[in-house]
Design a protein around this nucleic acid. Structure first.
Length: 361
DNA sequence: CATACGTGGGC
DNA sequence: TGCCCAAGTAT
């Protein structure tokens, strides 16, 4: 039996149930593929369900405000995906409302690269196009016992060719998903279960005796650590948030507490004044939130504060006073929720008198 | 081509 | 605790 047949037979018996696998609506599949970028299936599942319930069609997504889209994305990470998904939906509607069906058209959408274009084209439209994601890269690096960094362009071409050979022209979408599912559940980064693998017979990596040796990924750079002081300013059961600019490199378009770099002696109030205007008075009582990001780790110390001089937030910086309910609905960074719970502000927690006890994860 | 982007889970 | 990893894309 051909490898592609073995693979599909295995997939038919071993595939996991996923909400986006129930239908073949291109919009739904597109949304799922964007959410799944660098994100585990189990993490995506609840976000996907909430998102599709609120935005069941391209038109409903295109008609939404960006803040609401970001709020539904809150906690999922890589927020650029949400903004680009939203922008792409508006682009599609402006062009007539039909989902693009070819790889070439799909890849013109913001946030859609080679992987997502091939995934949507094959799964939703039956286009015979191989995908190359992290799973496929690992599975085929092992099958071929490929030495060297698999992310080099030349190597990727070879992997894509191998993926194409495993594609069943009658079921390209299932073939692609089968290879990814295999990587996610059997051909895992550590301790692969080669006994369960439909490709084991022809796997050169397994034949070497140490399939885990592949793929040979380059070392990662260590993240740098940043220390910040975030200020929870509360007034009439509302808290002050600042909106990050859309072109911000980090957490663009999301709301956050006013913050300043920590460590400058006595300079927090001054730093805040320079950044946001107004006279800041800070009551240093609250705890600490650790916010880890892949490439930067933030150690956020949370303190209470107040702003003298009315709404003295510098012009040009978008800011607002939010109730806990509004934050629940609209605030788009999960760090805001963490800090709010830590601070016990606006009636969101019973930890209001947590004193200087560190809090957070 | 290297780097940055977020977060949560596993060991 | 700290490190690795996960259905990639944009710059």
């Amino acid at each position: 039996m051909k490898d592609s047949d073995e693979l599909l037979r295995w997939y038919d018996g071993a595939k996991r149930e996923m909400p986006w696998r129930s239908g073949r609506d291109p919009y739904t599949i597109w949304v799922s593929e964007i959410m799944l970028q660098q994100t585990r299936v189990e993490t995506v599942r609840p976000y996907f369900n909430r998102f599709i319930e609120r935005f069941p069609t391209v038109d409903s997504l295109a008609a939404a405000a960006q803040d609401e889209v970001l709020a539904l994305w809150s906690g999922l990470g890589y927020y650029r995906r949400a903004r680009q998904l939203h922008a792409a939906a508006r682009q599609i509607v402006a062009d007539g409302g039909r989902m693009p069906s070819s790889e070439e058209e799909l890849q013109k959408l913001p946030g859609v690269g080679p992987y997502t274009a091939a995934a949507v084209a094959s799964i939703a439209f039956g286009v015979v196009a191989p995908v190359l994601d992290g799973n496929v890269e690992r599975v085929l690096s092992r099958v071929l016992a490929l030495e060297g960094d698999p992310r080099r362009a030349a190597t990727r071409r070879r992997l894509l060719e191998a993926a194409g050979r495993l594609l069943d022209p009658a079921r390209p979408g299932d073939s692609n998903q089968a290879l990814m599912e295999l990587g996610a559940t059997v051909c895992t980064p550590k301790s692969p279960e080669c006994g369960e693998c439909p490709l084991a017979a022809g796997c050169a990596g397994l034949a070497t005796g140490s399939p885990e040796h592949y793929p040979q990924l380059p070392e990662r750079r260590k993240p740098r650590r940043q220390h910040r002081v975030a200020v929870v300013v509360e007034r009439d059961a509302r808290v002050l948030l600042i909106r990050r600019p859309d072109d911000s490199e980090l957490l663009a378009g999301t709301w956050e507490f006013p913050w300043a770099p920590a460590g400058k002696d006595g300079g927090i109030e001054q730093s805040l004044a320079e950044r946001f205007g107004g006279n800041w008075q800070i009551d240093r009582r609250l705890g600490r939130v650790r916010h880890a990001i892949t490439h930067r780790a933030l150690e956020v110390e949370v303190v209470r504060g107040s702003v003298a001089g009315g709404e003295a937030i510098a012009q040009g910086i978008e800011s607002g006073w939010f109730t806990a309910e509004e934050i629940e609905r609209l605030a788009s960074s999960s760090l805001v929720g963490k800090i709010l719970r830590c601070a016990g502000a606006a009636g969101t927690s019973t930890a209001a008198d947590s004193g200087s006890r560190p809090c957070g994860p």
